[in-house]
Nucleic acid binder design. Structure first.
Ligand SMILES: [Zn+2]
Ligand SMILES: [Zn+2]
Ligand SMILES: [Zn+2]
Ligand SMILES: [Zn+2]
Lengths: 130, 130
DNA sequence: TAACATCTGTTATAATATAACATTTTAACC
DNA sequence: GGTTAAAATGTTATATTATAACAGATGTTA
C-alpha cells in the first residue's frame, strides 16, 4: 500500500490547485494562481511538480505540457499512465483500465528492451465536442 | 497508398537532417545544423517540422520535445504511434507492431469518446545501457 | 493574367524549464 | 536538548522551446 505521504507547504499548495481544477493546468498558470500565497518563482512550482509526480499525486500530460491530478489507483506511481484528450476543449481524462494496463505492462519490444514505464495518450473529440 | 509527396526546399533540408540522425533531434539543434544552408530562424524550422509531421514523414517524441524520422509504414500518417525510449542514452526506436496498433486503435473509452489518434511512449533501458 | 494557396524570410516575443547559490525547515539520532 | 543530514525554500538569472505578425516570393490552377 502506498504510505501516507506528508507534503510540504508548497507541494500542498500546488497539489490543491491542481486537484481543484477541472482540466489540466500549466506550470505558469499555477504560478500566477499562487502568487497571493507568497510563491513567486517558477522554480518553486517546478520543484513541487517534480515531487508530486514522483509521489504519483499528479501526472504530466506530455503533449500539452500540463499537469493533472491522479484520479486512479491503478497507475502505480506513474509507471503506467493513459489519458484520453479532447482535441477541441482541452478535456483530459485519466484512463483506468486494468486490461489495458496489464496488456501494455507486459508488452515487450523485440529489440531486447525491458520496459519500466509507459505513457499513452489518446486523442479525439469528447462527448460534448463531437 | 500514400501518394508521393513533393517537399519544399526547407522541408527537404530539415527532413534530410532528421533522417540522417541516429537519434531524435531537437528543433534548435536542427536550426544550428542548417544555418550554413541559409536557414536562420526558428520559425523556418518549426514550419517545416509541422508539415513533415502532417505528412507522416517524422514524429514528435513528446516527452523529449524532439523529432525522429518515421521508419514504419504502420503508423498511418501519425495516427497511431508508439516508441521505445531509453532513459539512459536517449535512444528512440519506433515500434511497429500490428497487433499492438490494432489493439489500441480499437480501444474505446467508456466515457463515450471516439479516438482518432494515439501516441504511446515506453521507457526503460536499452540493450546497451542495461 | 488573374486569383489563390503555399512557402519563405525576418524581427520580435511568448511560453516552458533549469542553473546556481544562500538560507531555512524538518526529521533522525545521540 | 544539541548535532547532524536531508529536504525544502527563496531568489536571481538564464536557457530552451515555441509562436505571433507581417512582408514578400513562388507555385498552381483557371
Ligand atoms: Zn494516475
Ligand atoms: Zn471536448
Ligand atoms: Zn512512423
Ligand atoms: Zn540506452
Amino acid at each position: 500500500m502506498a504510505q501516507a505521504q506528508t507534503l510540504s507547504r508548497n507541494q500542498q499548495i500546488v497539489l490543491d490547485i491542481i486537484e481543484k481544477s477541472k482540466g489540466p493546468l500549466k506550470a505558469y498558470s499555477i504560478l500566477f494562481n499562487v502568487q497571493k500565497k507568497g510563491i513567486n518563482a517558477p522554480q518553486q512550482i517546478y520543484r513541487a511538480l517534480d515531487k508530486l509526480i514522483e509521489m504519483g499525486k499528479i501526472h504530466k500530460i506530455e503533449s500539452k505540457n500540463a499537469f493533472v491530478a491522479c484520479r486512479s489507483s491503478d497507475c502505480e506511481i506513474s509507471k503506467a499512465t493513459a489519458f484520453s484528450i479532447c482535441e477541441s476543449c482541452e478535456m483530459v481524462d485519466e484512463i483506468s483500465d486494468a486490461k489495458l494496463s496489464k496488456y501494455l505492462s507486459s508488452f515487450n519490444h523485440r529489440k531486447g528492451m525491458k520496459f519500466k514505464r509507459f505513457n499513452l495518450e489518446f486523442f479525439g473529440l469528447c462527448k460534448k465536442c463531437k
